[in-house]
Design a binder for these strands. Structure first.
Length: 431
RNA sequence: GACCCUGUCGUCUAGCCUGGUCCAGGACAAGAGCUUUUCAAGCUCUCGACACGGGUUCAAAUCCCGUCAGGGUCACCA
């Protein structure tokens, strides 16, 4: 039975790199019908915070991952103590006393060659003569990362350790401990790191790093997952849009790339848009309601859901991020549209009193205020006036929405309604 | 600095294992155009890469060596 683990340390939010590590563990685990262990590595008492644990669990669930078992290292002190004593007894570790009289347990590293078989990289060789003696139990009684990690992975029967590249140099240290403890070695697979646009590690300086930040910005979890997946793996058929279920079917850990990848927000936006345009409007509306409410654009208890759904459908194919809806569609919720000064200058600087008045009349005369009828009456009008469609369509859009870009004008008029449309147009009519 | 990992368009990648079908394919971005209503959607086109140098071979992006470059790690942090 394949057993993998994801072992975040709750000293911060779940970040992109962690989410990606969780993703590949999930992919491998699901493709092998294995079990997924979640282990909270909270041995650093100073920096570990329960609110980070909550945040990490929440983000993992948001990404769609769940776990079969959950452990906290802080609750397993006696296990580490026990195995440290074992090493003390068989002579592979020794005690070091600090000036304050506190004792630490140190593993004695003997010189030898260590070969590690990595599922992604092949064989990697190390010389332990270059590794100094390793602290197992710190003088405050807590285990070090490398020690707790080995004890846990062994006791939890982890068969495959899939983690970031930055752990490659920990691997020989851990192999030494596995062997000293008499545990069988698991398989290792080291994922390439994700870089920021500046070439270094992805950091807050080069963009948002927390998974939850992307959720708050309006990225769908499926899209984020799809993007993260493509960062170091490809389905092999030039497909860019692939959902997690299909990926699980095609996934082979041996095909994971060795090269670190740069995080590219533009491509994430594109993928997100691909998902947004096919997303269920009901679901999108639900996500938008709190955002619109925060802007006082609607009241949760008394709004027209069908109407909101209509607006969502108008915009969803164009949005890079769901949250952009709030700004892009603001004119549907505000009493008065916020007019972009440049748009006003370009389209509303000439007097359109006659054209606007006539169009308002046509709208007033419509028996059925339907999109097709609105369009017909508009086209009839420009034909009669003998002007180009675009000469009138752009000024009307700016007057109604305040923007030069947006959904088709006739849909906009329909959803704005007859009354609001005529009022906004009449504002530009000189008496 | 030492050790380890990696090197295909600006970015993500396919191809590399099993040399020839690759004067290197796809996607994002960028640029141009189309869409007699905008674009931030859609469609079309363009630009653009095998890090470098040696080998091996009839033939190398693919195999070997070296160089260079980038990244990671060297904590009683995880």
């Amino acid at each position: 039975m394949v057993r993998v683990r994801f072992a975040p340390s709750p000293t911060g939010n779940l970040h992109i790199g962690g989410g990606r590590t969780a993703l590949f563990n999930w992919l491998f685990c699901q493709s092998q019908k294995g079990q997924f262990v979640l282990r909270i590595e909270d041995t650093d008492r100073e920096r570990s915070k329960p609110e980070f644990v909550d945040e990490i669990l929440y983000s993992l669930k948001w990404l769609g991952f769940n776990w079969d078992e959950l452990y906290y290292q802080s609750q397993r002190s006696e296990r580490y103590r026990l195995h440290a004593d074992k090493l003390l007894k068989n002579g592979s570790a020794y005690i070091e006393k600090s000036p304050a009289g506190k004792e630490a347990v140190i593993y004695k590293v003997l010189p030898r060659k260590i070969q590690v078989q990595d599922l992604i990289r092949g064989q990697i060789e190390f010389d332990s003569a270059l590794i100094k003696d390793q602290v197992l139990i710190k003088s405050d009684g807590t285990p070090t990362y490398n020690f707790a990690c080995v004890v846990d992975d062994a006791e939890m029967n982890i068969t495959h350790i899939i983690r970031g590249d930055d752990h490659i140099s920990n691997t020989p240290k851990q192999v030494l401990i596995y062997e000293a403890l008499g545990f069988a070695l698991p398989q290792f697979a080291h994922l390439p790191l994700i870089m920021g646009v500046d070439g270094g590690r992805l950091s807050k300086r080069t963009g948002a790093t927390a998974i939850s930040d992307y959720r708050k910005m309006g990225y769908l979890s499926e899209a984020l997952l799809n993007y993260l997946l493509l960062l170091s793996w490809a389905p092999g058929d030039n497909r860019e849009i692939i959902n997690i279920q299909e990926a699980i079917k095609l996934f082979d850990i041996k095909n994971v790339n060795k090269t670190s990848a740069t995080f590219d927000l533009k491509k994430l936006d594109w993928i997100n848009n691909q998902y947004l345009k096919n997303a269920d409007p009901e679901k999108l509306a639900n996500e938008l309601i709190p955002l619109l409410e925060a802007k006082h654009y609607l009241n949760r208890d008394s709004f027209d859901r069908a109407y909101l759904l209509g607006l969502v459908k108008l915009f969803q194919a164009r949005l890079p991020r769901l949250n952009d809806f709030v700004e892009w569609a603001d004119f549907f919720f505000l009493d008065e549209p916020v007019i972009d000064p440049a748009a006003k200058e370009k389209y509303l600087s000439t007097d359109l009193t006659r054209e606007f008045s006539l169009f308002v009349q046509r709208l007033d005369n419509l028996a059925d205020f339907e999109i097709a009828n609105i369009e017909d009456s508009f086209r009839q009008l420009v034909a009669e006036l003998g002007i180009e469609t675009k000469k009138l369509i752009h000024p009307i859009r700016v007057a109604l929405t305040g923007k030069t870009i947006g959904p088709g004008l006739f849909e906009v008029i329909y959803y704005l309604g007859k009354e609001r449309s005529r009022q906004r147009l009449l504002k530009w009519v000189k008496k």
